[in-house]
């Protein structure tokens, strides 16, 4: 899939992150190209969610360098000096990345369509009418047009997560980040969310997905990145990792899916 001529949409080099004395990321380097779907695997505490949060600057990194679509994230480099960007510049940079959370985090005081319309109106400055039309099209896409006027508490977990995906897509991000999108769902609701994610992947959206769903990793992803203890220990297409796992830990993740 990868061609050297294509420019990476996400470029992370030697990213380091600590919480106090606990070093969570010990130098993570990753490059993701346009339309690529990358799944990040790893046990809990391996730093995979933190890495996602660093990509869209929900966490500040302590070292390394991140570029999103060719633009340095959070910092500026000129004349040999690295400078922190002011808050208003970082706010704008975040719009290039859509994020889907484990706990959905839908705005509780807004209906489904209200959630999808909010940022296009208050951040991008679209008119309400345009944002509503776009929003309804997105809800249609995730199969929830008939639930547009319901509040989050009136929706099931799977439906909430599909609205959350529509909300992130509404900002037309260059990359979609999914942070364990199905981990908080009842088993029977996982399928509907994965189906929506599959459609998003098919539409050519660049995606980075932290998940434990081996089915999604094997069927949909172009590449799997396995993280352990703050570093990437394997980075290859799923079939390749399944055939030649780097160590026993990787094997324990990918083997059960291979019946």
């Amino acid at each position: 899939m990868t061609q050297t001529s294509r420019k990476p949409v996400v470029l992370a080099r030697d990213v380091r992150k600590s919480f106090g004395t606990n070093e969570v990321l010990k130098g993570v380097s990753l490059s993701v190209e346009a339309s690529e779907v990358v799944v990040i695997l790893g046990s809990s505490g391996s730093g995979k969610s933190t890495f996602l949060r660093c990509l869209n600057q929900l966490e500040d990194i302590n070292g390394g360098w991140i570029e999103i679509d060719g633009e340095p994230a959070g910092y500026d480099y000129s004349n040999g000096h690295v400078r922190r960007l002011p808050a208003h510049r970082r706010v704008v940079q975040r719009r290039a990345l859509g994020m889907v959370f484990q706990q959905f985090n839908l705005f509780q005081h807004l209906t489904a369509i209200g959630n999808v319309m909010e940022a296009p109106v208050s951040v991008r400055g679209l008119s309400k009418a345009v944002a509503r039309d776009n929003g309804m099209a997105l809800l249609e896409q995730v199969g929830l047009a008939d639930k547009a006027n319901l509040y989050p508490y009136q929706l099931s977990g799977g439906q909430q997560q599909r609205v959350a995906i529509a909300r992130a897509l509404a900002m037309e991000p260059k990359v979609m980040l999914f942070d364990e999108p199905t981990s908080a769902l009842d088993p029977e609701l996982v399928g509907e969310v994965l189906a929506v994610m599959k459609n998003v992947a098919k539409s050519g959206t660049t995606m980075i997905v932290v998940t434990h769903e081996m089915g999604f990793a094997s069927e949909v992803s172009d590449r799997v990145v396995f993280m352990d203890d703050g570093i990437i220990i394997q980075n290859a297409p799923f079939a390749e990792i399944a055939a030649n796992p780097a160590n026993a830990k990787v094997a324990s993740f990918v083997r059960p899916a291979k019946h």
Binding site: A87, L97, M99, F101, N105, H109, E118, S122, M171
Partner: peptide, 24 residues
């Protein structure tokens, strides 16, 4: 989580306060 979602959507802190935090 509401603040994180708002931040991830690219809201400035004032927009977040006005549109997400205060109403709730």
């Amino acid at each position: 989580g509401q603040k994180q979602a708002a931040t991830a959507l690219g809201m400035s802190s004032t927009t977040m306060l006005r549109r997400v935090i205060l109403p709730q």
